[in-house]
Structures are given as C-alpha cells and as structure tokens.
Design a protein around this nucleic acid. Structure first.
Length: 515
RNA sequence: GGCGGCGUAGCUCAGCGGUAGAGCAGGGGAAUCAUAAUCCCUUGGUCGGCGGUUCAAAUCCGUCCGCCGCUACCA
C-alpha cells in the first residue's frame, strides 16, 4: 500500500513571534507525516513562512530594518522553532524566495488567462493614520458625525484600483465539491460553517493592492502587488516547482492534507480550491483545521503577557512530553487549555507511570532474569493471545484514525493497550513465576516485549526521541521500526542494553503556591 | 439578527431508541518486578429545564435557559 503523501503546515506570518499555537499545528502535521512514512508512504512535508504585506512592511519599519532583513530574521526564528520541536519538514518555503515569486506569478497568469481576473476598484472605509481598510461593522459614528476606526483613527471612503478574482463564479462548483467530498473539510463542524458561508453567496475577491510595495508584483502591471491570499496559498504549489510540470516534486500534487489553524480555514477551503479550479489544477484532498490554546484558562494575548514560546515549555519539561501533551489533552480539532497542572499530570500519570514504568519493569525483569537477552517466543495462553491480538491490530486501527486526523483518538487506542499490558504483567506476575516456572516467566516477558515493541513503534510519530530510545532498549534495530517490520519477530537471544528510565516523573523543583 | 454546535459523575469527555460509560480525582483492598509506579474492587449522575412522539428517550420532535462557533478581504 505505497503511494505519495503530501502534507503541509500553514506558512506562518512573520508579523509576530512564534508561539505555542504555531508549534501545535506543526506538530500535528509532523505526526501525520511521520506516521505515513512508517506506513511506507513516500512523504513530502512542507512548512515555511509568509512574509509579504503591509503589516510586515510596517513592522520592519518600526524595527528600523529593511523588510528583507526583518523577514530573514523572523523567518529564521520560525525555522528554529520547527527544528526545536523536531518537525521533520522536507522543505521550508518562504514567500520571499525567488522560486515562490515566479511560481505565484505563473499561477496568476494561468488564472488570468482563464478570464477569472479583472481590474476593478476596491472600496472601503480607510484610515489614513492606520493605513488600513476597515469593515462596515468595525466603524463607529461619533456624535459629531465623524466615523472612526476601532483604533480611534478617522476613516474616509476610499477607492483603490485592484484586481479581482471572479470568486462569485465558483459558488456552485465549491458546493458540489463539499457535497461530493465531505472529507475535504475537517473536522465536520467546520464544514458546516464553510458550507453555510458559501451558500450565503460569494463576492469577487480583491487580490491586489497598490497601497504598499512589499509583495509579489502582479505580472504585467507593476503598480500592483498581490494581496495576501493569492500570494500565500500559492506556496503549496511553488514549493513543488510549479509551474514546471516536470519538476520531480510535482508528482506529490495534489496535496493529501493541508493542516491549518481554524482562523484560516475559510481561505483554504473556499479561495484555494477556487483558485485551483480557475487554473485547471487538481484539488487537495483534505483541509483540516485545529483550534486554539488558552493558557491557564485565559486567552493567549500580548497584553496579558501570557503568550507561550514553545521552546520555554520544552526547556522545562522536555520535547516529547510537550508534543504528547498537546496531542493528548483534548480531542484534536477543538479548543483546549494548557496549564502547568494538566501538563505535569499527563506527564506523570500517562508517560511516567503507565508507559515509562511498564517499560522499566519489563526490561529490568529481562535484564535480571533472562541474562539481558530477548527471550524466545513460546507457546501462548489465551491471555497472551488476547494481548498480542490487541497489539497486532493497533497499526491498522491507528491508520484509520490518522487518516481522518483523529490524532487524540489514535493515542487513546495506544493507551488502552498500555493499560492492558500493566494488567497483564500483574496477573501473570513473572516475578513469582521466576521461582515456580522460569520457562513461563520467559514466555510472559517475551509477550510483553513484543507488545512494547508495537507500542513504541506506533508512538514514534508522536514522540520520536523517546521512542527511539525505547526501541533501542527493546532491541529493535534501525531497519526494524516500521509497520511492515512488525510482521517479523525480533530474533530470540538478542542482547538488550541496560534498561534506563525513559520518562522520569516530573517533580516541582520548589513548592509553589497552588494555582 | 441569521445559520450551526454544545450543555451526561468533582474534572475532561464518550455514548445518540432498549434497564447510565471511560480516563483523571475520591474511598477500600492486594501485590512488591518497577520511576512509592502497578493491579483489583468501589463512592458518585432524576444525562440543562419543561412539554411531546414511542411499548421504550441522554438518544427523536417542540420550546425555554445557558455557553460557544461562523456570518469575506483581519492569518
């Protein structure tokens, strides 16, 4: 069951510093990428940064830097976070890359050639002071009749020449897409919102600006630069070498999965497929949007000063516990809260107690009673078969769940097996068999080692570093860690390294005041 | 305002027509291989309120209350 799999994160806007939300989306995409590699797929995993627009231009100015120098710096910071979180991306695209600019322009020309881009005028309430347009609902009228933006800046009705994309022409085709491919938008709740949005009727979309220069020039009209979405969304194609149909990476198109934050779900499920239809390009298979994180019950915001840099969490708790926590805490797709208490609790209960301790007790029994070598498989009891049967179907069960991006549910399946292993070892009591029936003891420990191997194998995408260590301790060599390799038992007698704890309990360094 | 979702044990949630479930937290017990970890048993809910359909409703319908999401150019 091989094949290609192309998964993307959003390209992150370099307007602000990377925070836990960015890391969350990237980790989710990383898990899907790693899981598909384990399943034998040829995977291409893309991440990157979105670097154009007026806000960046202004932020650079505020920082006293040239836009390019500014974006170089912030983009590098996003890349550093991706590396710190062990995101296994194959390429990092920047919208300031020459390859991207050329590709975005090619896409524009293709859509224009199809007759879906025309010159018009963008109108709206404009605040000169903010250099920004505001929506009707954001404008308040003062007692003296003047209209002002939320910032308090006076606004006036402005017209700016702009190219438009004929989005209105795609309403029916988009609805048909949602109808015939319900899996295109995930999770399901998000799909309902998008469908009702499109049913309300679509207006043409302004896709260029003349009010700032920091962007991709519109082909054939140097007065305009592309406005955010046409530029940004194109990255998923330009990274593959578009418009060169013969570029080796183009074989990965169409994308299997665009992982996005819920704030940009609409752009990926309405604008993007419409652009692609206009360009005669195949559509991605799925756009899955995740929710927001709150911190200790409060919304993350600069003004509250509670914005979390994921690197700080990693520094204190370690990378894999953080990756695990973010995927485990709540059903993927919804909003959730990160708090010290919940993080430490997950870490100690599920990683240290359930999984870490299971590995440690099993491996130290083998080390002490089996000469430190992997025991042979032996005749199995009903209990053995039950446990191993549960383990054997785990990769398939998880494949189903990862396929619908049910990343939390997939983890729950693993933990069912871990709990079953803890019950099994207690009921079998190999430490007692040691005196009464050493052969059976060895058989029991081998059953546990085999179950643990499955557990560690399927958890690799979630916790690559820790599971690498666990597999090493279980005697699984580099070529013995894929789903396919699970078909072949490890040879009996293989010498195992000395067991070492993988998930230490987290103890608060100091007694702090609760809450 | 319109559309949609949610409201089930102290907490986070699953169940979505047939005598209320899981994990965590709480209580009791067992064991002692292990990271004082584990295992077994257990307390606990009139499934938001009120009506209706049905032999039977967390589960379907109506209504009310309370939260939340979406409602286009803001990532």
């Amino acid at each position: 069951m091989t094949g290609r799999f192309y998964v993307t994160t959003p390209i992150y806007y370099v307007n602000g510093a990377p925070h836990i939300g960015h890391a969350y989306t990237s980790i989710a995409a990383d898990i899907v990428a790693r899981f598909n590699r384990l399943a034998g797929k040829d995977v291409f995993f893309l991440t990157g940064t979105d670097e154009h627009g007026q806000k960046v231009e202004q932020a650079a100015q505020a920082a006293g830097e040239e836009p390019q120098a500014f974006t170089d710096r912030i983009s590098a910071d996003f890349r550093a976070v991706a590396d710190a979180m062990d995101i296994s991306y194959d390429d990092f695209i920047r919208t300031t890359d020459p390859r991207h600019k050329a590709g975005a322009q090619a896409l524009w020309e293709k859509v224009a050639a199809n007759g879906d881009i025309y010159l018009g005028a963008y109108e709206g309430w404009y605040a000169l002071r903010d250099e920004a347009f505001y929506g009707e609902d954001e404008i308040t009228t003062r007692a003296d009749g003047t209209k002002v933006a939320p910032s308090g800046a006076p606004v006036e009705w402005m017209r700016e020449p702009s190219y438009f994309f004929r989005l209105s022409a795609y309403q029916d085709r988009l609805l048909e897409l949602y109808e015939t491919h319900p899996e295109f938008i995930g999770p399901a709740g998000r799909r309902n919102e998008i469908v009702s949005f499109v049913k309300q009727g679509l207006r043409d979309l302004s896709v260029s600006r003349t009010s700032f220069r920091w962007g991709v020039p519109v082909p054939g009209d140097a007065d305009h630069v592309m406005y955010v979405w046409f530029d940004a969304l194109a990255n998923y194609l330009t990274a593959l070498g578009y418009p060169d149909a013969n570029a080796p990476r183009m074989a990965f198109w169409p994308a299997s999965l665009h992982m996005v934050g819920k704030d940009i779900a609409r752009f990926h499920t309405v604008y993007w497929p419409a652009f692609l239809m206009a360009a005669g390009i195949d559509l991605p298979h799925m756009v899955f949007s995740n929710g927001w994180w709150t911190v200790e019950g409060e919304k993350m915001s600069k003004s509250l000063g509670n914005v979390i840099d994921p690197r700080d969490l990693v520094a204190e708790f370690g990378l894999d516990p953080v990756r695990f926590f973010l995927m485990r805490e709540v059903p993927f797709g919804g909003d959730s809260d990160v708090s010290r208490r919940s993080l430490i609790n997950r870490m100690n209960v599920e990683l240290a107690n359930d999984l870490g301790n299971l590995g440690q007790r099993t491996l130290s029994l083998i080390a002490r009673n089996c000469g430190g070598a992997l025991p042979a498989q032996a005749a199995r009891t009903e209990a053995d078969n039950h446990l191993l049967g549960q383990a054997a179907i785990l990769p398939d069960v998880m494949t189903q769940q990862i396929g619908r991006v049910a990343l939390t549910d997939a983890l729950e399946e693993v933990w069912k097996l871990i709990r079953a292993c803890n019950a099994y070892i207690d009921h079998q009591a190999p430490w007692a068999l040691k005196k009464t029936d050493p052969e059976r003891m060895a058989a029991v420990l081998r059953v546990l080692a085999d179950a643990l191997r499955v557990i560690a194998t399927v958890l690799q995408p979630y916790m690559p570093g820790s599971m690498d260590r666990m597999l090493t301790q279980l005697g699984a060599e580099a070529g013995e860690r894929s789903f396919a390799a699970l078909e072949t038992p490890l040879p009996a007698g293989r010498i195992l390294p000395k067991p070492e704890g993988i998930f230490p309990r987290f103890v608060e360094p100091e007694i702090g005041d609760a809450k």
